[in-house]
């Protein structure tokens, strides 16, 4: 894969076309601006409920999903906006979902925590920590049984690594050699409880040893490092050799959800991680390797700003569900 003359280049630069790299940066910007827009709409009372923002974690979502083929699938988490965008969802239909509209991905029935986009292979966010992990393994079982050659990326946070479902699912994926890649986005806190206080293993990737699969801990704010590690895991999965566990170290700049008062971490710690902004880093990398100019980046930002503004307008103007449809789609209509 890596050509000798490019041996010293970062993985992403050596392996992806300029267009693909540019698209990756655009998706990172889209995630960031989508979430900033959602937060703004929430503050202005346009969106109700709650939401879990992944601002600061964009590299793990985009760096992972860019490895996949269009037919491959992902499962996501309550902090799943980034995964959804990275797998190809439209900001307009995501905003429509947040606004509770019929044009949303879930016709306004799911909201932020349950967005799915089956057309693009996103099997869904999940409101239950670790709830999506066995489901990803089930999707991988389907892929193997029906010879679909699909790989499933299973995203979850550090908090999920202490759920029974995590351990049961990794064990089954390994004994049955299923084509699934477990991606732990370790953002240091399960709500307020730090990984140090909650997890007996030094690294979450160490859990892989117990399930006889490769486990690796990487800088989750480095898009190139993420895509390199996930590529290895996806190649292994597609070859029928079984699952891998990738632990991406990252950080959420915002609180856990809208109720968070940030009592469990310091301003200094947050500032330290803001300085490791994955978008700034990836943008600098692309400029350093002459893939984009500063002007190109500005133009990308402007086009993303326009897309977000239009998406919010689309959401505002979309029709709301009828109250009389409250029990529609509990069961499949039999024709």
């Amino acid at each position: 894969m890596t050509k000798p003359k490019k041996a010293n280049l970062p993985f992403a630069i050596a392996n992806y076309s300029p267009d693909k790299l540019k698209d990756a940066l655009r998706k990172m910007l889209l995630i960031r601006k989508f979430e900033e827009g959602a937060e703004d709409c929430y503050t202005r009372g346009l969106i109700h409920g709650t939401m879990h923002l992944s601002i600061g974690q964009e590299a793990s979502a985009v760096g992972s999903c860019m490895v996949l083929d269009a037919d491959d699938q992902i499962t996501s988490t309550h902090r799943g906006h980034g995964h959804c965008v990275a797998k190809g969802a439209k900001a307009s239909r995501m905003f429509a979902e947040f606004f509770g509209k019929e044009t949303g991905y879930c016709r306004g029935r799911g909201g932020s925590m349950h967005i799915a986009d089956f057309e693009n292979g996103n099997l869904g966010a999940n409101g239950i920590v670790a709830g999506g992990i066995p489901i990803a393994v089930g999707a991988a079982l389907t892929s193997k049984r029906l010879k679909l050659n699909k790989v499933i990326l299973c995203f979850f946070g550090d908090g999920a690594n202490n759920e029974g479902a995590f351990h049961e699912a990794l064990n089954m994926a390994s004994i049955w050699k299923l084509p699934v890649v477990f991606i732990c986005e370790n953002n240091k806190y399960g709500m307020s409880t730090s990984v140090e206080r909650s997890t007996a293993a030094a690294n979450i990737a160490d859990r892989a040893v117990a399930y006889s699969m490769p486990g690796v801990t990487i800088d989750g704010n480095d898009l190139s490092a993420v895509s390199e590690a996930v590529t290895k895991a996806v190649v292994r999965a597609r070859a029928g050799e079984g699952p891998s566990l990738v632990e991406a170290l990252t950080y959420r700049w915002r609180g856990h959800s809208k109720s968070d008062r940030n009592r469990y971490r310091t301003k200094e710690e947050i500032a330290e991680w803001v300085a490791k902004d994955p978008i700034v880093r990836f943008s600098a990398l692309l400029q350093e390797h002459k893939i984009l100019t500063n002007q190109d980046v500005r133009e990308l930002e402007e086009s993303v700003d326009k897309e977000i503004a239009e998406a919010i307008e689309f959401a505002k103007e979309s029709p709301a569900p009828f109250a009389s449809d409250v029990t529609r789609d509990v069961y499949t209509e039999l024709t």
Binding site: P134, A136, V137, A139, T142, A165, E168, A169
Partner: peptide, 28 residues
Amino acid sequence: EDRVIDTPISELGGAGVAVGAALTGLRP
């Protein structure tokens, strides 16, 4: 044994695998 699958003693995980399989095209 590929179609009559003995699971480990993992009711939660096993049920979840069945849910994921059903969601993606199998009939568990």
